[in-house]
Design a protein around this nucleic acid. Structure first.
Lengths: 143, 143
DNA sequence: TCAAGATTTAGAATAATTCTAAAGTGGATT
DNA sequence: AATCCACTTTAGAATTATTCTAAATCTTGA
């Protein structure tokens, strides 16, 4: 999993937005930056707080809007782990999430290729797969 | 997937609750009945409304409590599909969910056996897998 | 029967998300 | 350069989802 340079990230952002007919705005850039900067699957609220540091005027609704736009443009995924806030992830490679029921940490994990051939019923069209594994992570298991 | 009789369901409920050191109460029975009766992955709010018909005094908090208890006892699963309310499902066989992005319907789908051997990192313990497929169902695809 | 603990209730409180209306922006057209 | 229009952002209100609280009720075992 090769890391993109800052420049490449920005270009990728512009391209993907453009492809969806959406504009590159400073707010969208900022929100995307937040996601890329610390990949800890933050909630919308957390993204808001982080974005506010660099851009104090940004509003709550804008963060939600930007996150939706990123998701629609294929730049981020939203992940529902358990009751409560939705989380966001800029890793668009096929992967699943491991959620530690003890400490709450979320880890990205690889998925077997077989998954992509899960039989969906006749006539159904599968667009994407969300896989979450609930369990105990190594750190918590030790205790 | 063999359907259980009403009597068997009730027995199953008692056993599973007992195993977790929890009591069988009329409210828990009612909430479980609601889930078994119409397997359309209702939200807590929907369960509340349905349960209220048969048991008008039941409260909101109790429904949440009962649902949590059912989940803890292995009688139901909670499913997070997208932003918004959590949904509940009494089907405890290994299966995934197909969520139609168009009409919103949720279908149970089978899973390949390979899934259970998704490699979790060293020392991690996987308790359960949640698989959701987002796409378009056959009905909506036709349109 | 009594005490302790579990459970339910109503309603308040909090958290998460969406909506609304007004203002701002940017590019295309005149 | 002025104007138009669609897209965006903003602040704050509104709504929806969930959790908390304190009092009342029920169950069970001593």
């Amino acid at each position: 999993m090769k890391a993109r340079s800052h420049h490449e990230d920005e270009q990728h952002l512009t391209e993907q937005l453009g492809a969806t007919g959406l504009r590159l705005t400073p707010q969208r850039q900022q929100v995307y930056d937040v996601l890329l900067h610390k990949r800890d699957h933050p909630t919308a609220e957390e993204v808001f707080i982080r974005a506010k540091k660099a851009m104090p005027e940004i509003s709550h609704a804008t963060v939600y809007n930007c996150l939706d736009v990123l998701v629609k443009s294929g730049l981020a995924r939203q992940v529902q782990l358990e009751r409560g806030a939705t989380r966001f992830c800029p890793n668009m490679h096929e992967h699943g999430h491991f959620h530690c029921s003890d400490c709450g940490t979320i880890y990205d994990v690889g998925l077997p290729a077989e998954l992509s051939c899960v039989a969906v019923p006749q006539g159904f069209r599968a667009d994407n797969y969300d896989v979450t594994i609930h369990g105990i992570c190594a750190n918590c298991a030790k205790k």
